[in-house]
Computed example of a mutant assay.
Amino acid sequence: MMDEALFRELYERHWSKLYNVCHYTIGSREAAEDTVTEVFISLWNNPRYRDIEHMEHYLVRAAKNLSLKYVVRRRKMDEALLRMVDTLQDHHRHSLPERPLAVKEINALASAALSALPGKTQEIFLLNREEGLTYQQIADRMNLSVKTVEYHMSKALRVLGQSLLATLIAMAPHSS
């Protein structure tokens, strides 16, 4: 196990740089902080930490790798949530007459979840989904970075996806 004094020294010396690396890649303060924490937990649990010749290089590489993994996971989740929203919208457009109440419930829940989002997140989501603007076009229009637009879209999709998923589970026929 790593010496606590050495760990504290490495943490204090490298935290800020690792945070900047993660924040640049991820674009979210909270996610960057969590990723840096993961890097240090991994180091703490690494029984071969003494074999690491260039500690700063090792830590920066670990931060970059974990940040990229986070971005890939987030994009996959966002894509899955977008497909779910599209499926629900298609279902709404082609709904069977015997299920109009369920479709109304889903639409009401989606509207409520959307209206509960912060104004900027809501606006970005609507520009993308209703006006069909790309993230770059939204960033240009709102004078934001593309990473900021990605962050807000991810937030909107996460909230909407969770709400819609909860509704679908509640509406699913239960076997008794």
Score class of each variant (00 low, 15 high):
residue 162 Q to Y: 13
residue 90 D to A: 11
residue 114 L to W: 02
residue 44 W to L: 09
residue 141 R to W: 00
residue 72 V to L: 07
residue 165 L to T: 12
residue 137 Q to N: 08
residue 29 R to V: 12
residue 128 N to A: 12
residue 54 H to V: 09
residue 88 L to F: 03
residue 143 N to T: 08
residue 30 E to A: 04
residue 148 T to R: 12
residue 71 V to S: 05
residue 161 G to N: 05
residue 108 A to C: 07
residue 67 S to Y: 05
residue 98 E to Q: 11
residue 52 I to T: 13
residue 126 L to N: 13
residue 144 L to P: 00
residue 137 Q to P: 01
residue 104 K to T: 06
residue 131 E to L: 12
residue 41 I to A: 05
residue 127 L to S: 01
residue 107 N to S: 12
residue 35 T to S: 04
residue 117 L to A: 03
residue 51 D to C: 13
residue 63 A to R: 03
residue 62 A to D: 01
residue 45 N to H: 13
residue 140 D to R: 07
residue 67 S to R: 05
residue 112 A to E: 14
residue 101 L to N: 08
residue 35 T to N: 08
residue 36 V to A: 08
residue 121 T to E: 04
residue 43 L to N: 08
residue 87 T to R: 14
residue 150 E to K: 15
residue 131 E to K: 15
residue 106 I to K: 03
residue 100 P to S: 09
residue 128 N to S: 08
residue 43 L to W: 11
residue 79 E to C: 02
residue 104 K to R: 15
residue 155 K to N: 05
residue 66 L to D: 02
residue 151 Y to F: 10
residue 99 R to D: 01
residue 148 T to G: 02
residue 144 L to I: 02
residue 146 V to Q: 12
residue 42 S to Q: 14
residue 148 T to S: 08
residue 64 K to F: 07
residue 66 L to N: 03
residue 75 R to Y: 12
residue 115 S to D: 12
residue 146 V to L: 10
residue 48 R to V: 07
residue 94 H to D: 13
residue 144 L to F: 06
residue 152 H to Y: 08
residue 65 N to P: 02
residue 70 Y to M: 07
residue 147 K to N: 12
residue 140 D to A: 06
residue 140 D to L: 10
residue 54 H to F: 13
residue 159 V to G: 00
residue 137 Q to M: 06
residue 165 L to R: 15
residue 49 Y to V: 06
residue 120 K to M: 11
residue 84 M to W: 09
residue 65 N to E: 13
residue 92 H to A: 15
residue 79 E to M: 04
residue 61 R to L: 09
residue 52 I to V: 14
residue 53 E to G: 10
residue 81 L to V: 07
residue 162 Q to N: 13
residue 101 L to P: 01
residue 91 H to G: 12
residue 85 V to Q: 03
residue 59 L to S: 01
residue 51 D to Y: 12
residue 164 L to G: 00
residue 132 G to W: 06
residue 57 H to N: 10
residue 64 K to S: 08
residue 80 A to F: 13
residue 66 L to F: 05
residue 74 R to M: 05
residue 50 R to W: 00
residue 75 R to V: 09
residue 162 Q to L: 14
residue 85 V to S: 00
residue 86 D to Y: 14
residue 157 L to T: 05
residue 61 R to W: 09
residue 37 T to V: 14
residue 155 K to L: 04
residue 147 K to H: 08
residue 138 I to C: 09
residue 150 E to I: 09
residue 77 M to S: 06
residue 88 L to M: 10
residue 158 R to T: 11
residue 127 L to R: 05
